[in-house]
Design a protein around this nucleic acid. Structure first.
Lengths: 121, 121
DNA sequence: GCAGAAATGAAAATGATTTTCATTTCCGGG
DNA sequence: CCCGGAAATGAAAATCATTTTCATTTCTGC
């Protein structure tokens, strides 16, 4: 575990949900850390191999990451400024469970994020 | 519906499952059709807008497509064998829309996948 | 047959991600 | 401390799918 990985983990903790490599890099720079984009990618790849982060793809194919084992919740993410709001997901939980049961799936989990443009953008 | 779209539909029918834009282009060329890669992408984009094809992302972020005349839906993915089942998502759509509206978000989209282990695994 | 619209595709641009490579930092043994 | 090699770092170049640009060709309705 090297410096870059620690920095990436700490910013992921701060974010508390999904973020792309580029977003994480920006956030690190903005909070005063000195780190190259290359190192962010390398750290994410390594954390992925170690099963410390989860990777998903947005609809446009960009990869987004989050810490494994984050408390389960969902976000409403602004496509423009990146601000996030935690949202209530019990309806979603029920839906996911119902769909899985209907098809005989076991050990069910799910991932969901809602994207949009926030009122201030 | 133009020529390129017809060609792309016909090769998708032949394939009978998922294929990437690059693969579809190669297949069309190999089967004697004359078509540019640009047109394959354009046709796929247009078919996607018309909900005639369904787009997914491989783990490396490359887009793959297949014919699918159904409405917007989500997938139930087997964590073990990777097989996917399309699931009905109207409950999810409603949830996403409600959450976004509640917070004043515009131009809403969402991302959702349900994971589990399928009956045959 | 003809003008304007739509379609086409080659080449350039884009944007995320990866690779290369030279430099810097770390670390253990002398 | 000091030295040398190993690991880490990051800037710049390379990669690769996808999109855009733009000039050319094909349709269409009149």
């Amino acid at each position: 575990m090297n410096k870059s990985e620690l920095k990436v983990i700490s910013v992921l903790e701060r974010v508390g949900g999904f973020a792309s490599a580029q977003q994480l890099h920006q956030l690190l720079l903005r909070s005063g850390e000195s780190i190259g984009l290359t190192s962010v990618y390398r750290a994410l790849q390594s954390l992925l191999d170690d099963k410390i982060v989860d990777q998903l793809r947005k609809e446009d194919g960009e990869a987004i990451y989050r810490l494994c084992g984050e408390a389960h919740h969902h976000h409403l993410v602004c496509k423009s400024c990146g601000s996030t709001v935690e949202i209530e997901g019990s309806a979603l939980e029920k839906w996911a469970k119902a769909m899985a049961e209907e098809h005989g799936y076991r050990e069910v989990g799910h991932l969901a994020e809602v994207f949009g443009i926030c009122p201030s953008c």
